[in-house]
Design a protein around this nucleic acid. Structure first.
Lengths: 220, 220
DNA sequence: TTTGATTTTTTGATTACTCAAAATTATGAA
DNA sequence: TTCATAATTTTGAGTAATCAAAAAATCAAA
């Protein structure tokens, strides 16, 4: 039975593999993401490798094995279903469910997660627009543009927020940028590091490129 | 922040203090209840004592301190609210929620438990009839008779099942002895270790004294 | 290509929890 | 009261996860 730490590392490696497009995830990146010392991540990565959950290339990084990917996706499914459950059934705010889900994902049984999945009608997206993996481990990949590379002056609908940090989500919420809402990008200024947009909900808003790239949209 | 193990030990000591009427809970009893080696329980009890959560008398046993009791009751509140939630909201069977609750009780935040409490209308009893401690730590104590010492040939209502072991609850369920159901005790035979009863739901049933003592009732 | 900076790994320790088995203390029957 | 039995504690050891700091490897810039 995988420990909580192992589940956390696998989930982390999976998410880093998703965004950083390169092949291997360096141990330092894992350490930063999980807020542990570099040596700790190296040590853990070695035990993951010994268990056959990752392929580890010293001084280069790791990559999930098939077994590791399966486990990581299973954890991610629990996390995202729990998030949606907390919003839809418990009535919590979408911007504050992440921390709770981070702990519940290790405690919910398969039986319980199956009931939740059923109650919610086998949903495919969590409250942040992230895809919910199926019970068999399939993750629907979408390739929405983000606010940095989408068309200018064109109506879009917010599809997904790819950063769950509480402070970021609070900012996003404050500017009316929750998934589903409409907006269009007015202009971008690379040098000023600024993206100006018009939100149907909260009027004109300006974001840095870093923040803007975390908001995925769909042209209408 | 208390670890999961510490929460488990405190909850266990609390429950043992409740039923075994004597003052101190022996370490061996804790070891048995938690399925750990005797020496493990002794070691843990010492760290609990060092943290001021129990009063420990070597070779005699332990007793919760005020701080320990407070923490134990807090865990118990989470456990029982989660159990009721799983039955009422998720629709799980009352006889199978204990294991899930045993893990969720360490993962639900105060914020979440407050929402659950509100959703359920600030309930006072869990699905087994056990009292749910209040947020401030008050536990309503009741002293129902059980099937061994209640009046014979008198209609009673089942108030509480004081053993959450899955196999026991399945047996209880099979004989229609769920909380709320009606029954009367027909006869008892100390030598045969048998209590015969008439259940409104499932007809005549015979139980041993050990099992019968775990079922608490209320005269109608 | 050498070197200085960065990243990664190694080393040595620590905390939390656990076990098996030996040593100790308590208990109860003769 | 004594002694065998039962319960408890101690001892020695192991696993899992972590850190700080030293050592090694890699990378990039001159």
């Amino acid at each position: 039975m995988p420990t909580i730490a192992i589940e956390d590392y696998l989930k982390c490696i999976y998410l880093e593999e998703q965004q950083g497009k390169k092949g291997l995830v360096p141990t330092g990146q894992i350490a930063t993401a999980l807020s542990v010392a570099p040596g700790t991540a190296t040590a853990m990565v070695k035990t993951l490798s010994d268990s056959g959950l990752v392929h580890y290339e010293p001084y280069s990084g790791v990559q999930l094995s098939e077994a590791g990917r399966k486990l990581a996706v299973h954890v991610l499914r629990r996390h995202r279903l729990v998030e949606l459950f907390l919003v839809q059934v418990i009535g919590m705010d979408w911007s504050e469910v992440h921390e709770d889900a981070d702990r519940l994902e290790h405690a919910v049984s398969d039986r319980l997660i199956a009931r939740i999945d059923e109650m919610l009608g086998h949903p495919t997206l969590d409250p942040h627009g992230d895809p919910i993996p199926t019970a068999s481990g399939v993750v629907a990949e979408s390739n929405h543009p983000n606010l940095v590379n989408c068309d200018l002056e064109r109506p879009h609908q917010i599809a997904r927020i790819t950063d769950q940090a509480a402070e970021f989500l609070r900012l996003v919420e404050r500017h009316g940028l929750r998934p589903g809402n409409r907006l269009s990008v007015l202009s971008r200024d690379e040098h000023a590091d600024a993206v100006r947009l018009l939100s149907k909900d909260a009027g004109e808003v300006s974001l840095g490129f870093r923040a803007a790239s975390k908001i995925l949209v769909q042209p209408l």
